[in-house]
Nucleic acid binder design. Structure first.
Lengths: 211, 211, 211, 211
DNA sequence: TATGAATGAGGCTTCATTCAT
DNA sequence: AATGAATGAAGCCTCATTCAT
């Protein structure tokens, strides 16, 4: 029975975190009540406290799940790093495909809540979100360097700064997409992004020839 | 005396909105109390209600001020549009300089709160933040077209999609800067952005020659 | 098997009451949860309800056990009543020795909780605690009378009032000992109490001679 | 207006503490709700939080008031110390008269709650109640010594231990009086107490002569 | 019998808002 | 116009109690 209980606890926790993620996204972390979450999870409000000591910890659990999602997303990118110099071009594709998912809107909203929460904390110690972003930055920077080595990107570009730009683009696209759903075709945008990246790569030869 | 009163009211409103902006940024819109705002504005809690019917309206006023800031920022860009094809390169410089200001962090935080608020509203009717972003997008797109016409950017690039990318970049940089203040030198990043834009421009001739 | 079960139930009840006594003393009757008690008794929360209908009845059972302890304590005194006129001097010794026991602190705390509980009830009908105290009072009064008859105590003293004083002393010492553990040596105090009682006895002859 | 406000605040605090004292006595500190207190004070529950940060602090304020009462009671005793060797006999009278007051029952109940609260805290650092009792003990001990010096009490009695006995008596009487209101005439008891004290005094000469 | 997950009532506390002064 | 005391509606959380397993 021990394992059954363990599994049960795990699955309940998952359900609660899922419900919380959904409610937090819909009403805001501050605006969603424990009752909202409980109802969404099919529980009474008090029951949540068997699994999480308080709202704060539930919020953290939600943020952790978001961080995990982000990590998985970038793990795909890291996979692509192996193959070729065109891995960079995958960045857009990967993010684009993830954006089509229906739950991604919720996740993006919560990433922003997360960033806001940490920005307010004003803690000199890097918050957890900062760590996630550093990791993503590092992956992208590696991709950029590989691209440059493989001739897919002009070596004259500062890899770190360019990685920041790319990461900002990815983050920014998700944010902007929250507002401009109607007027902007995201597939088209990612196509354009790949186009730009390709151009930045194709340049290299010409420029080298030129100089 | 009517005008004196009118001015007085205006200045009080400004003070309140300013205080609210500061407190909302520091504690979050939901986390900051009317008492917080009043104290920061040098008033008692009840006094705010002479100027704003409720917290909701105060929040809206803060968002409006944020929107105004954004509009002013992009008005500078629109100015640059007149001059030359290199106006595009200014985008980075303008945003970069704005980021050095100390209050910009607060503004960025509130932009995110604003976006979140509207994303939650899920209102089919475009919210006000959406309008601001559409306007920014439009300005950037015009800049891109001018750049292409002036030969500063490859005409093969889709102007609309590229504008979205640029806007996302600008938004994303502000967001990312909230987390990675320590590890990233923003000036360097904007330099790199300009570098990239220049490269996308310089390509043109080569590519055209090539093709 | 019926008796085995019966014994089992009895021992379980004892364990629960013991655990409850301990937790109630440590955290207060209101502050201790059924979970606390259950854990201390090595049971799950729900199991207690097989033995007691609710917390209220458990509290009553604890009080009853406390009352039983008190009764046993005074039974010793009643024993002493048989012997001689110096039985009264035993009062101090008996209570003193009981105070050295480690669990007495818990018992004293619960006696106070009990008194408080009944004082609040404000029930015109004498509560159970009152009955215990009446009994103690009666025993002490008998002791006093015997002492007077045996010449160990001045017959001029009102036996009932003096018994109240003695009982108050015993109760008061336990209460005061809760607070002044460090600064007061209780053995010394009880020695002094016996000394006083002896003096009250020795007087008799003198006074009688005198009058 | 400043002073008016100050007075207003003071009087409100007093009213709240008074209401709290009454409700805590009637229902127990744990059993009385903030709503109970507020209603008794003629306020809404939330209003209390303008004057006290929380229930805990309100409880402390009540305890402080109780402590103040106790201090005043013993200040009267300290006054009597000046006069003569019969001051000791006053102890009973003072306490007795205080017991007739209607609010004393509440105060006694809260003294017990206070003692219980500190006994539970188990803080090695002496709690505030302990300090009050030490002070009372010290006053009584001084009284005892004066009585001995003035020839009103046998010098052979250990003053400290006897002071503990007397304090215990006073405390104990209050506690016992909670339960035995009906069956015990307190005036009679205090008369007997004085009688006993007088006897302990009159002994001196005889005993000295005797020895 | 025992478990422990779940409920639901209720307590403490906060805060937007009102209003007498 | 301004104050700040007061209200009342929630929200978070605890816990005695129940019940399916």
């Amino acid at each position: 029975m021990a394992r059954v209980t363990e599994e049960h606890v795990r699955s309940r926790e998952d359900a609660i975190v899922g419900a919380a993620l959904s409610m937090f996204a819909r009403k805001g972390v501050a605006g969603a009540t424990m009752q909202d979450v409980a109802t969404a999870a099919g529980l009474s409000a008090g029951a949540i406290y068997r699994y999480f000591p308080g709202k704060e910890q539930l919020v953290e659990a939600v943020f952790e799940r978001i961080g995990e999602s982000d990590r998985l997303l970038f793990a795909e990118l890291a996979e692509g790093m192996q193959s070729s110099g065109e891995a960079l071009a995958n960045v857009g594709r990967v993010v684009s495909s993830s954006l089509s998912s229906d739950t991604v809107r919720d996740q993006t909203i919560l990433v922003l809540e997360w960033i806001l929460a940490e920005a307010r904390a004003n803690d000199p110690a890097q918050g957890t979100r900062g760590v996630v972003e550093e990791a993503q930055l590092s992956i992208i920077e590696t991709l950029v360097r590989r691209s440059q080595e493989a001739g897919g990107l002009d070596p004259g570009i500062d890899p770190h700064a360019f990685a920041v730009i790319l990461l900002s683009c990815l983050v920014g696209v998700r944010v902007v997409a929250l507002e401009l759903t109607e007027s902007v075709d995201m597939d088209q945008v990612f196509e354009a992004l790949q186009d730009v990246l390709l151009r930045l790569g194709s340049v290299r030869d010409e420029v080298e020839v030129e100089s």
